[in-house]
Write a protein that binds this DNA or RNA. Structure first.
Lengths: 233, 233
DNA sequence: ACCAAACTTTAGGCAAGCAGAATTCTGCGG
DNA sequence: CCGCAGAATTCTGCTTGCCTAAAGTTTGGT
């Protein structure tokens, strides 16, 4: 009965852990205990304990001193939470007038409380959106998720024309600042210049001649973009 | 610091207790331990323990072996939960196509997770409704609530013309059955007859000549109505 | 290869909530 | 006005989830 598979008797805490681990794994390497502790703002020993439980439940694999990796089952549960979070964020923004900088906190609580049915009704009411307000892809009901290779603005070559595709939803202040620059997912621009030594990048917003913005290195790192194809034919 | 007033550090459990106690108090008498235990489906000793905590927090007054009564502060907190519950129910029904028999369970979870801001946004989107889908009055933000004297269908005199105003949201099956009879809050009807010995009541739906329904005593007791004023002038 | 820093685990505790058993109180009937 | 049934309370103990402190393991620099 303490075995894997079976029912979803996931506590709120477990849901948080799975989501955090999933997001940490996106960097390619296994999620380390200390990283998980940092993401969830709990002490490292608490993570060790929970990792043991989740490992015994078959939701992840744990290689001591190396890190953890979600199993297929764990990943599925994590993606279910990611879907919930992003659907809720999109719904609150689209239907209830929330700003994109204030939805994260609300979604963080609601994702644990809503039923699968409510999520699907929200998704339906939104026309099954593919991206949340921050440009993050929304996993499908079956757990599939779009994987795209975005380049941070800090890495885009000067001269390139690109489109902002995705930003992190975690920091409301940063989101407000990004919005104040006229940037949001879908906006395209040209990289006009960049100072060396991790200096700021200058961009020109498309369709707004003379509308230039200077963006510091750290912020530029967090703006994920896609180079725009040149006009074809 | 363990005193009354101060911040709302109400746990989910405390919120449930306050709401249950508020509803039990509606019958006039103080809420008894066993009644609270029954309403929340917990054991009596659990209630005793929680009552002690809530009493020490100034949310209710406890007369040992007699029962509890919410303080002004406790009542306010309870009404806040009732508002949340009913706003959520109304929103889900109106905006997301839920049936009135399935909203209760979802609202029961969401009422603990939504922020005050989300509740007010939902209320706004609904045009600040005064009643939920079951006809129950929605407390205002300041904690005021409409008090109406309804009469159960079982107590309405034969010959009376009345309007169904309110039904309990607790039992989905009963709600589905009520709906199948063509009844919902706002529907008016005439009491055509009633059998003695707690027998069934026969009603005729207004505007539907020949549309008669026979309603058992227990069900009739749960249908709260208001006698309709005769045409004036 | 060794040692220190970083990381992980173990051990021991705390708090919230709940339940079962044992005890105490209330109120009613004789 | 005594005693008993039923209700309420207290006591004890379980579970979840988190913490700190201390002990153990690994890694990397030299």
């Amino acid at each position: 009965m303490t075995e894997a598979s079976s029912q979803q008797v996931l506590t709120r805490s477990i849901e948080d852990y799975l989501k955090a681990i999933y997001e940490l794994e996106q960097d390619g390497s296994p999620a380390q205990t200390s990283a998980i502790a940092g993401a969830l703002d709990v002490a490292a020993p608490s993570v060790s304990g929970m990792v043991k439980r989740l490992s015994e439940a078959g939701l992840l694999q744990h290689v001591p001193y190396r890190g953890v990796q979600l199993t297929k089952e764990g990943k599925h549960a994590a993606l279910r939470m990611v879907r919930r979070h992003r659907i809720v964020e999109t719904y609150l923004t689209t239907k209830l007038g929330y700003d994109w900088d204030s939805v994260h906190e609300e979604a963080e609580r609601l994702e644990h409380a809503v039923s699968d049915e409510l999520i699907e009704r929200m998704a339906m009411a939104l026309g099954n959106p593919r991206y949340d307000p921050h440009g993050a892809p929304i996993p499908a009901k079956d757990g599939s998720i779009e994987t795209a290779e975005y380049i941070s603005l800090a890495d885009l070559p000067v001269g390139e024309v690109a489109e902002l595709r995705m930003v992190s939803d975690k920091d409301p202040e940063r989101l407000r600042f990004i919005a104040s620059l006229g940037l949001r997912p879908g906006v395209s621009f040209e990289v006009l210049g960049r100072q060396p030594f991790r200096g700021p990048t200058t961009i020109g917003l498309s369709g707004l001649p003379g509308k230039e913005q200077v963006i510091g290195y750290e912020l530029a790192e967090s703006l994920l973009c896609l180079a725009v194809e040149k006009e074809v034919g």
